[in-house]
Design a protein around this nucleic acid. Structure first.
Length: 492
RNA sequence: GCCCCGUUGGUCUAGCGGUUAUGACGCCGCCCUCUCAAGGCGGAGAUCGCCGGUUCGAAUCCGGUACGGGGUACCA
């Protein structure tokens, strides 16, 4: 049983997706269940919008969950904001059992002692001053108007656990002090809610970011306390800490970093399977078969082969170029029909086709998509290359730089010759790729003695508006006789 | 300050005592070619952070050290 439990703050980012992917793949590989929980206990930072994005992203990626938000399950609710009574109860039971206590230190007092500890070369965590306050002392503080936090009483022992990706890790007793589990205002903290829910939901394997590696001893201590008060399944889960995904420099990709915005990738035309494949490669790789390494694979292949022991513990830099290359491979893996279906929203978005496309628009897409299928890494590139087929003549424009380069005097001469050649077909012979190619080659290559690239460049720019386009003759066929001739005449 | 994690070409990665140190992205060149891609072929690029040890032999084991990152919160 594994889980993914993000906090709904800001935009979902790539590091988060990688964590979700690995947890999901781990659960699926082992035939376990996957829980999707939302940790929204910090009202000041969490937002409903962010929650919606999280759900949206998980669905887009295709990382399905067996229980959790939106789908429910036996251990719900799955939003921590709806489980406050559970945490209050657990906190009280810990207090009653003497496993936690109320601490009345003010922020200033804590800071002062922290500084002193640091100056003396000691760890700077809580010093346990209020650990054994008498009822009288507590009453005295409360009489002062102090509101206590609840701190967990860390047992004085060393903490060792066998990290799923890093192996044995030990923290000395002196370095893990009593920590706050409930704020002075009564709100529970992650330190309480996370282990509580993991225990209640039967989570056995926790894959999470390296940033909370050092909080693991606390979590383990919480589980041991839970066992004492009879909460949950009484077992400590296994932990695995995934490395960071970093951006330029070595800094962790933050939520504010535009490069990390997950939905931005969808909008740019990345395929979920392409992005996921790339993310998988950041810290994991498919085992080689007969010495052959394979880095383009499907989600199913990943699930089949996913061993947590193969996960790399060192941080990986997100390389957009490689991500695009992998995505391009996945685009090519799609059938023409599937690609067309994925492309439709992008054409609709640009106003190039109706929503849903009309019959003729659909037919045009069906004919045009194969022409660009292997020419793109991102879906948006198809829109750019095929726009000339869908745009009205009134708004059709030619790239200025390309026009300057190709439609000079010599270029226009070529267009004139092409126009004459094309005008002759369509009446007696069919307007088709072979007849178009035949006519143009005869007129431009044979008669004028031009090199192909010199001959077809100007025609391409005049008809498609760009020096970069799908194959020319096929493009002209799809454009149709009338529109082709009009566009050639328009530049003369 | 204290604690923890990490360190193989520009980037990601294989490697688990003996390899000319693997592959991918990117880059360069050639081929194909109506543009752009895709595809094919070839090339440059790491001695595996550093020092020391163990060993006949180390990227692989051990110990130091440097550098990077994270934590040290009434954030997660």
């Amino acid at each position: 049983m594994a889980r993914f439990c993000p906090s709904p703050t800001g935009n979902p980012h790539v590091g988060m997706a990688r964590t979700a992917l690995f947890s999901w793949a781990y659960a699926r590989h082992r035939g376990g269940r996957f829980v999707f929980r939302i940790e929204d206990t910090d009202a000041s930072r969490d937002s409903e919008e962010s929650y919606d994005l999280l759900v949206d992203v998980m669905r887009w990626l295709g990382l399905d969950w067996d229980e959790g938000v939106e789908v429910g399950g036996p251990n719900g609710p799955y939003r921590q904001s709806q489980r406050m009574d559970v945490y209050a109860d657990v906190a009280q039971r810990l207090l009653d059992a003497g496993l936690a206590y109320k601490a009345y230190d003010t922020a200033e007092e804590l800071e002062q002692r922290r500084d002193a500890a640091r100056a003396a070369g000691r760890p700077s965590g809580y010093d346990g001053l209020h650990r054994d306050l008498t009822p009288e002392q507590q009453a005295a503080y409360e009489a002062e108007g102090r509101q206590p936090v609840i701190r967990f009483k860390m047992p004085a022992k060393d903490w060792t656990f066998d990290d799923l990706v890093r192996g044995p890790i030990t923290f000395g007793a002196d370095n893990v002090q009593d920590f706050v589990i409930v704020r002075a205002n009564g709100q529970p903290l992650y330190t309480l809610t996370n282990p509580t829910d993991d225990a209640l939901m039967g989570i056995t394997h926790v894959l999470r970011g390296e940033d909370i590696l050092s909080s693991t001893p606390r979590q383990i201590a919480m589980y041991e306390a839970f066992a004492q008060i009879g909460l949950g399944h009484g077992m400590v889960p296994r932990f695995g800490h995934l490395p960071y995904v970093t951006g330029a420099g070595n800094k962790k990709l933050s939520k504010r970093d535009p490069e990390s915005n997950l939905l931005g990738y969808r909008d740019q035309g990345f395929l979920a399977e392409g992005l996921l494949n790339y993310l998988a490669l950041l810290g994991w790789s498919l085992p080689a078969v007969d010495g052959v390494e394979k880095d383009v694979f499907t989600l199913a292949e990943m699930v089949e082969a996913f061993e947590i022991s193969r996960v790399n513990p060192n941080p990986a830099r997100f390389d957009l170029k490689k991500c695009e290359a992998i995505n391009g491979d996945h685009v090519r893996l799609l059938s023409d029909e599937e690609l067309r279906a994925r492309l439709v929203p992008f054409f609709v978005e640009e106003g190039l086709v109706q929503d849903p496309p009309t019959e003729s628009e659909a037919a045009m897409l069906a004919a045009a998509v194969p022409l660009v299928h292997e020419r793109m890494a991102l879906l948006t590139e198809a829109v750019a290359m095929l726009r000339f087929l869908f745009v009205d003549d009134a708004v059709f424009t030619i790239d200025e730089a390309d026009a300057a380069k190709q439609l000079d005097e010599k270029g226009l001469d070529v267009v004139r010759a092409a126009l004459a050649a094309l005008e002759s077909i369509g009446s007696t012979v069919e307007w088709s790729t072979p007849t178009i190619e035949g006519a143009l080659r005869a007129a431009l290559i044979d008669d004028l003695g031009l090199k192909p690239r010199v001959a077809f460049g100007p025609v391409r720019v005049a008809a498609t508006g760009s020096r970069i386009s799908p194959p020319l003759f096929e493009s002209l066929e799809l454009l149709g006789r009338t529109r082709t001739l009009e566009r050639l005449r328009a530049v003369l």
